[in-house]
């Protein structure tokens, strides 16, 4: 568990490395100038899945809990946002906050059984059931959700300005994603993040040195829910159609793929994983029909050969990255 402050690096260079984080979004500001409309959409979708991966990773990688409710958080965020925009014509920032909040509440709710001592496979199965139950609710609460046809979400508005093009959305998304990723990074580097790690590595030991494990567990799930719920909100604004089938078990497998292929407990890994798997249909364009098989094989290969995911490749290539963003 090295890699954070105090591993021998001096403070100044560590602070400098922190600023490197902000270079990436800055560099990305110019991206729309060089890409077309279709690629812009894929990039926006990638940003959505970056949050999905980053949020999921908090529970999966950092807290080490086998929770399968991520597609549910994603859907709850999307539905909360879509419902407010569709029924109440809410402005996008408000609907976005509602999506994040709903995701966070769902996260806290899912943490409750964990407090009752339900762990590992039991938690997995229970959260799996929760996700499927949510899908049933989307279909049957049709007065609010419009049932299985889903909702046609109106164009998002930002302080009276309508976000029409994917480039408009891109800058909003980039800002939201950058903020949440930075916040997650800070959270994980803090005392709270270390508590998550302690719980993952040995819960009993963590409890015995006075870490209030229950409180941290709820916090981790809730934060994961906030991040993934926000991803759902962005999804609603991007695709502008929210329907139950978008949050099924296949979607969940994609979320797992992003985290595992990118690298467990690695923020940069989740970003990489999201980029790789969102672009997957492009990569497999010459092999139609093979996408599922190839993604599955990619997951098996990563699990067997590169348990730390693609992030470990980055770590090998860049000492700065390794020192700051990678733990082994």
């Amino acid at each position: 568990m090295t890699g954070t402050a105090g591993s021998g690096t001096d403070r100044a260079s560590f602070a400098a490395s922190g600023r490197v984080f902000w270079l990436l979004p800055l560099a990305l500001l110019g991206l729309p100038l060089v890409i077309g409309s279709y690629v812009q959409y894929i990039v926006n979708l990638t940003l959505v899945y970056v949050l999905v991966g980053v949020g999921f990773n908090v529970v999966l990688g950092n807290l080490g809990q086998l929770a399968f409710a991520n597609a549910a958080f994603f859907g709850i965020g999307a539905y909360a946002t879509g419902t407010l925009m569709y029924h109440l014509k809410a402005p996008f920032p408000l609907a976005l906050c509602a999506g994040a909040l709903a995701g966070g509440l769902a996260g806290a709710l899912v943490a409750l059984p964990a407090l009752r001592g339900i762990r590992a496979f039991y938690l997995a199965i229970m959260t799996l059931a929760f996700g499927e139950l949510m899908r049933w609710i989307y279909i049957n609460a049709d007065a609010v959700t419009l049932g299985s046809m889903g909702m046609q979400v109106p164009r998002p508005t930002l302080f009276g300005y309508v976000l029409v093009t994917d480039v408009d959305k891109y800058y909003v998304f980039l800002a939201v994603v950058t903020l949440l990723v930075a916040a997650t990074a800070n959270l994980l580097r803090s005392r709270v993040g270390r508590a998550f790690t302690a719980i993952r590595d040995n819960e009993l030991a963590a409890a015995s040195i006075g870490i209030p494990t229950a409180r941290y567990m709820v916090l981790a799930f809730a934060w994961s829910g906030v991040v993934v719920g926000t991803a759902g909100a962005l999804y609603a604004a991007l695709v502008r159609h929210v329907s139950p089938e978008a949050f099924n078990l296949l979607e969940l497998i994609l979320h797992f793929g992003i985290v595992m292929v990118g690298g467990l407990a690695s923020l940069a890994g989740s970003i990489l994983g999201a980029a790789v798997l969102t672009a997957a249909p492009e990569m497999f364009r010459d092999l139609p029909g093979y996408e599922e098989l190839l993604i599955a094989i990619l997951m098996v290969a990563v699990l067997l050969l590169m348990p730390k995911g693609l992030a470990s490749l980055l770590a090998r290539a860049s000492p700065l990255f390794r020192q700051r963003y990678f733990r082994d």
Binding site: A124, F256, I295, A296, I297, M299, V300
Partner: peptide, 13 residues
Amino acid sequence: AMMAIAVGYALRG
């Protein structure tokens, strides 16, 4: 768990 899911997904694919 992930390995089991991935293997199943591969079979289905």
